[in-house]
């Protein structure tokens, strides 16, 4: 017993202060992309050609689909003028798929649920996680939210074992054909009203597997999605930020820069 207390003392208090104090993120984190349109050599297409998942489009202005983006950074490396780079703002989650297609101003961050849904879910929201072809990358960074570092429980959020106990699903992976039935059944097992959160490039767009006949390019074609969390995988803070925005626990988006 004494050894356990000694170990407890050694390990210390390690829960992060965010959102009450600033978050610490790695300086090399590839977060929200930053586009300097003045420096962009319009239409040189170097970034478009470098992207392995066709996340970038050019129609008079550069648009980036963060739902496809793997945040690999190849576009920024390819940019001859340094107009495109990945900053380390981790806030990326949106309520609508189209809000992930971003130009200069970045994605439109998720708004809170409506008043009635907030009344039901705002103080206690429980999710069942379903991996449907996820590579255990997104799963790892969801799991970590339940550790003392992020301490999901302090926000009234919880990952539960059964869909019957849940208010919604967190889906990862592109939804393989072999998991399609199980995803549908798990969703049916959640009593309404219910939410669906798509975490990671695969669950949003199929990620690096988009177009494969063995999967379904994400969960959006099968279930109504309430929150999209982009990344490959998203940083745990990106997921937590999205969930907290959903339940109105963070101030609405302030224009950055």
């Amino acid at each position: 017993m004494f050894d356990i207390l000694k170990a407890r003392h050694h390990q210390g208090f390690r829960t992060i202060g965010w959102p009450d104090s600033p978050a610490v993120v790695p300086d090399r984190l590839r977060g929200r992309p930053v586009l300097d349109e003045a420096a962009c050599r319009m239409g040189c297409r170097a970034c478009l050609d470098a992207c392995p998942v066709e996340a970038l489009t050019w129609e008079g202005a550069l648009r980036m689909d963060l739902g496809r983006c793997l945040f690999c950074g190849r576009c920024a490396e390819a940019c001859p003028t340094g107009a495109l780079r990945f900053g380390n703002d981790f806030r990326l989650a949106t309520r609508r798929r189209e809000d992930l297609v971003a130009g200069r101003d970045g994605p439109r961050l998720a708004a809170a649920l409506d008043a009635e849904m907030l009344r039901v879910f705002g103080r206690s929201l429980q999710f069942r996680q379903v991996s449907a072809g996820g590579c255990n990358g997104c799963e790892v960074d969801i799991n970590v939210l339940t550790t003392v570092v992020f301490d999901l429980g302090r926000f009234g959020l919880k990952i539960v074992a059964s869909p019957r106990h849940a208010d919604g699903l967190i889906v990862t992976g592109p939804v393989t054909e072999n998991m399609r039935l199980a995803v549908g059944k798990t969703f049916e097992g959640v009593p309404p009203p219910r939410l669906v959160v798509a975490v990671g490039a695969c669950a949003i767009s199929g990620g690096p597997f988009r177009g494969h006949p063995e999967q379904h390019d994400g969960v959006g074609g099968l279930l109504p999605v309430d929150l999209y969390v982009p990344g490959c995988p998203p940083h745990p803070l990106t997921i937590l930020d999205g969930l907290l925005r959903l339940i109105g626990r963070l101030p609405p988006e302030t224009p950055s820069r």
Binding site: E177, H212, E214
Partner: peptide
Amino acid sequence: LGYQHRGIERA
């Protein structure tokens, strides 16, 4: 198993 099959070897 097989539920996670994404067709990697085919791709």
